[in-house]
Design a protein around this nucleic acid. Structure first.
Length: 456
RNA sequence: GUGGUUGUAGCUCAGCUGGUUAGAGUGCCUGAUUGUGGUUCAGGAGGUCGCCGGUUCGAACCCGGUCUUCCACCCCA
C-alpha cells in the first residue's frame, strides 16, 4: 500500500470499546425517552435541499453538506450562474439533495407529511447522526449524533416542565452530577427589544447579549453600539448586566425592566410557571438556572429556550439544547402546530463522561469466558461447554488455534475476559472443567452444571 | 468562511544554528518457561520523518502548496 488510507476531516472511526461506551449512553437516554412516553422515528440521512435550505439562517445554509447530482450534472447546470461565479445559484442547479443538518427540521417535515396518520399531541424521539460542514474543534465534528425528544400539538407549559425533568433524569442516570439546565424565553428577549424600541434589531441584540460570559459587559455594549443600538437604549437595559442571585431574584429584576412590555411580562409568567413546578418537584442532580443572555436557535424558537452546560470542571460547549417553536411546521404548510423539544449531544456527553471517568466498568466487558485450546480432542470437549454456556446466556468462546498457552492467556488478558476454562485430558476423563478467574488467579474444577451456575 | 497551530516506529514523544547509518519509553514477535497469563531478563522486527514541489554539495529541520490535528473567531451538539 503506497499511501495510508484516511477518513474525511471531522469524522471518526469507533473501536469496540468506544462503541460499547456510546451504546451505554444511547441506551440510557433511550430508556428514559421511552419512560417519558416518547416513540421512536427515523428519517433519511439526506433530504431534498428545499427542505433544509433557509431553515437555519444564512450561516446554517453554508454549513449544510450538499450532494452533487448524479449523472451528467453539468448538462443541467445554470450556465449563467457559472459564468458569473455565483456559487449559490450554481449550487441549486447541480445539487438537489443535502445531508441532514439536525433532527428538528426533518421532524417538522415528517409531521406535515404524515399529519393524517399521527395522533396529537405526538411525542417522538430520534437518535441519528447529523452532518455539518463546520471546521472541527474539540467536541465539534462534521458527523455527530443528536438524541432528540420533541412534542408537537400542545401549547401546554407542562411539556417544558417535563423536559426539564427529562434532562435531570437522564444526566442523573448517567451519574453526571452538577449539570446546569439554563433556561430563557424568547418573549423575554423580545421584551428587551421592545422596551428599548429596537424590535427590528432583535437578532443583533440577542446575538451580542449571548456573548456576555465570553467578552464581558463592555464587549457586549461595544458590539451593540456597533450594530446601531443607541446609548440611551443600553441605559434602559443596564440591570440585565447585574443580574445575580436566585431564580426568583432574577425574575424580580426582570419585572422592573419589562413592566411596560406585554410580551415581556408573558415571558416572565411562563418562566415562573416552570420554576414553580420544578420547585415543587425538586430536580435530583441538575440545577435549573435562569440565564437571560441565552439566545440559541432564534430562527425558530418562540418561547422557552434551553441549553445544558456540563459541570464547570469540564471545558466543553453545551451538551444539550432545545426550546419551544410555535410554528415550526408552518414553513411546510401546517399552521398552528406548536412544538417543543430538547436535544442531547451524544458525542460531547461522551467526552465529558470520559474526562470525569464516569463510565461504569461493566461497559467494557463483552466475552465472559474463553476456553483454552489444547488440541483437537480438548477443543471439541471445550466447544461443547461453550455451546451450553451460550444457551444459558453467557458470552463464551473457544480460542480457535492450539497456540501456546501463554499466547492464549495473554489474549484473554488483553480482551479483559474475566474467566478462562482449562480442560485437558485429565479433566475430560473426570468430566470436569478447570475454571480460572483471571483477576484473582484462583482456579477450581467444576462440573458443567456448576460451571454454568458459577458464570451466570 | 477568516487567522493561528500540529504532523517523526502500532501508541506517547526526543531529535542541537540544516551535516554521514533518525532515537527513547511503551506495545509487538521470539526465547528463558512444549498445561497456567499479568512481573522479570535476553534477543528481534518495525519509520518513503503527513503528502507534493522548491532552495542547498547536503533537508526530519529552511521556503511554497496541500491534507490532517488542535485553538480563536463565526456559528453550534
Amino acid at each position: 500500500m503506497a499511501q495510508k488510507p484516511s477518513i474525511p476531516k471531522g469524522t471518526r472511526d469507533f473501536s469496540p470499546i468506544e462503541v460499547a461506551k456510546r451504546s451505554y449512553i444511547i441506551n440510557t437516554i433511550k430508556f428514559q425517552f421511552v419512560k417519558f412516553g416518547f416513540q421512536p422515528i427515523e428519517t433519511p440521512s439526506f433530504e431534498n435541499s428545499d427542505t433544509l435550505m433557509g431553515k437555519y439562517g444564512e450561516e446554517g445554509d453554508r454549513l449544510i453538506f450538499k450532494i452533487l447530482n448524479s449523472g451528467d450534472f453539468l448538462a443541467k447546470a445554470d450556465k449563467d450562474a457559472y459564468k458569473n461565479e455565483d456559487s449559490l445559484k450554481l449550487t441549486s442547479s447541480i445539487s438537489e439533495k443535502a445531508l441532514r443538518y439536525d433532527l428538528t427540521v426533518p421532524f417538522a417535515r415528517y409531521v406535515v407529511q404524515h399529519q393524517n396518520e399521527l395522533e396529537f399531541p405526538f411525542k417522538r424521539y430520534q437518535i441519528q447522526p447529523v452532518w455539518r460542514a463546520d471546521r472541527p474543534q474539540k467536541g465539534r465534528f462534521r458527523e455527530f449524533f443528536q438524541c432528540d425528544a420533541d412534542v408537537v400539538g400542545s401549547d401546554s407549559l407542562w411539556q417544558e416542565v417535563e423536559f426539564v425533568q427529562l434532562y435531570d433524569t437522564v444526566f442523573t442516570a448517567l451519574q453526571l452530577e452538577g449539570v446546569t439546565i439554563k433556561i430563557n424565553n424568547r418573549k423575554i428577549l423580545s421584551g428587551f427589544a421592545e422596551v428599548i424600541g429596537e424590535q427590528d434589531k432583535l437578532i443583533d441584540f440577542t446575538v451580542a447579549l449571548d456573548k456576555l460570559d465570553k467578552i464581558g459587559e463592555q464587549g457586549v455594549k461595544d458590539e451593540m453600539l456597533q450594530k446601531g443600538i443607541s446609548e440611551e437604549a443600553l441605559k434602559k437595559i443596564q440591570p440585565i448586566f447585574g443580574m445575580k442571585g436566585t431564580f426568583n431574584d432574577k425574575i424580580a429584576i426582570l419585572h422592573t425592566i419589562l413592566e411596560t412590555s406585554e410580551i415581556g411580562k408573558k415571558g416572565i409568567e411562563e418562566l415562573q410557571f416552570i420554576q414553580k413546578a420544578i420547585s415543587e418537584m425538586p430536580l435530583k442532580t441538575a440545577v435549573l438556572d435562569l440565564d437571560v443572555t441565552l439566545a440559541r436557535g432564534l430562527n425558530y424558537y418562540t418561547g422557552a429556550i434551553f441549553e445544558v452546560a456540563a459541570p464547570n470542571t469540564v471545558k466543553m460547549g453545551s451538551i444539550g439544547g432545545g426550546g419551544r417553536y410555535d410554528d415550526l411546521t408552518g414553513i411546510f404548510g401546517l399552521k398552528n402546530m406548536s412544538g417543543v423539544g430538547i436535544s442531547f449531544g451524544l458525542d460531547r456527553i461522551y467526552l465529558v463522561l470520559e474526562e470525569l471517568d464516569l463510565f461504569p466498568t461493566t461497559v467494557s466487558a463483552a466475552t465472559k469466558v474463553l476456553v483454552i485450546n489444547f488440541g483437537e480432542d480438548e477443543a471439541m470437549y471445550g466447544l461443547k461447554a461453550v455451546q451450553k454456556l451460550r444457551e444459558a446466556g453467557i458470552a463464551a468462546e473457544l480460542y480457535p488455534d492450539a497456540a501456546k498457552m501463554k499466547k492464549q492467556m495473554n489474549h484473554a488478558n488483553k480482551r479483559n475476559i474475566p474467566f478462562v476454562i482449562l480442560a485437558g485430558a485429565e479433566e475430560i476423563k473426570a468430566e470436569v472443567y478447570g475454571l480460572k478467574n483471571m483477576v484473582s488467579g484462583n482456579q477450581e474444577k467444576l462440573s458443567l452444571e456448576d460451571l454454568i451456575d458459577t458464570l451466570k
